[in-house]
Amino acid sequence: MTHTEHGDAATARAGEILRTEVGSGLHGIAIAGTDDHDEMGVFVEPPECAIGLRAPMDHYVWRTQPEGHHSGHGDTDLVMYSLRKFLKLAVAGNPTILLPLFAPEDSVYAVTDLGAELRALAPAFLSRRTVERFVGYLDGQTDRLLGLGRQGGLPNRPELVERYGYDVKYASHALRLGLQGLEIAEHGRLTLPMPDADRERVLNVKSGGVAELDDVLADVKARILARLESGMPLPDEADTDRISAWSVDAHRRHWKF
């Protein structure tokens, strides 16, 4: 097979309500000629999957590259989640899952009325738990960069390590994650693309402009933890009652029940 595909494309496409860019281009940190293109979509499962006896279908994946091959410049990676799966991950504060909710209009490739309603719910997903989840992901990525703990999620880029002393691309993503978690903690919002100052800081790391790995994430986590300690303009948890009520109504309307 010349590409990678998992799941039922027809089911995912038929139920699609939202699809946006989610990669480096969305964050404003793509470097010309180096980055692939990432998209994420949301679809409503047919009723036989959600409430009937047919097996649930919670995601669909399509990648330009075959299984086991890294994506590179010019490649496209698409992942689509069922609405139920997407909402569960978003309520839990998964950083990547939140991106379609905050993507600017020019990064939205497909949206129905239900998709627009979902995006309008974006503030209901942000909470203290979201910030804590960002910190957890940041810790995991930092440990991998330092060679600590589980290394399974660290991409194999020996050419970057040889040239710069560490994987500058992975480090830039860790920094981006930390800065976005800090923005949510301080302002209760997620700006996409990243604010100019944050974007330039990330691009400086990604292009090899920071010689020492220890300097990449300096102060970011400490500032997030300080905000968690002192308080922030967010509730402790996502507004699950509001999100759940909308989900029930959205499924009914999509199915025309």
Results as ranks from 00 to 15, higher is better:
A171T: 03
H251T: 03
G7V: 02
Q180A: 10
D77R: 04
I224W: 01
L118D: 04
D113W: 02
A32K: 15
P193W: 03
A174R: 04
R19Q: 09
R144L: 09
F125I: 03
T191W: 02
T2L: 14
G178K: 02
L179A: 06
R199K: 12
E159F: 00
G209Y: 12
L234A: 07
T240Q: 10
L192H: 08
E162S: 15
A110F: 15
E39I: 07
S82F: 10
L101F: 04
L26A: 07
A222D: 15
L154M: 12
T96M: 12
G93N: 01
A12W: 02
Q65Y: 00
L101A: 08
Q180K: 09
E183W: 05
R133D: 11
E117P: 08
P158M: 09
L177N: 08
L26M: 08
A116W: 10
D241M: 14
A32G: 12
G23P: 00
V42Y: 12
M1A: 12
S24F: 05
W246T: 14
E45I: 09
G149M: 11
I29D: 05
Y164W: 12
I224E: 03
R189N: 11
V44L: 15
D196H: 13
A12K: 06
G25H: 07
D167F: 03
L225P: 07
L87H: 11
K206Y: 06
I31Q: 13
L83T: 12
R129D: 13
T96Q: 04
G152D: 14
R157W: 11
T142A: 13
G41E: 06
A14C: 08
E16H: 04
L177F: 02
L78G: 01
L87G: 07
A222E: 15
P104N: 01
R163F: 01
R150C: 10
H3P: 03
R199M: 09
I224Y: 00
A226M: 11
I184W: 02
D143I: 00
W255K: 09
A30Q: 07
R54Y: 06
A116F: 09
L98Q: 06
K85Q: 15
L26Y: 06
I51G: 09
P158F: 07
G208D: 06
S127L: 04
H173W: 04
E48K: 10
V220N: 05
L126T: 01
L192K: 08
L179F: 07
D58T: 12
H27T: 05
R13G: 02
S82G: 15
D8E: 05
F43I: 04
L217H: 11
L18T: 00
M1W: 01
D75M: 01
P66S: 14
A50P: 01
W255L: 05
G147E: 11
A124Y: 02
G231E: 03
L138Q: 13
V42I: 15
R201G: 06
L182M: 12
I224V: 15
H254V: 13
A218Q: 15
R189F: 00
R163E: 11
L145I: 05
G178E: 05
E105Q: 10
L154E: 07
V216C: 11
A50M: 14
W255Q: 06
G165V: 10
S127H: 05
Y109P: 00
R63H: 07
R129N: 13
A9V: 01
D8L: 02
A218M: 12
Q180S: 11
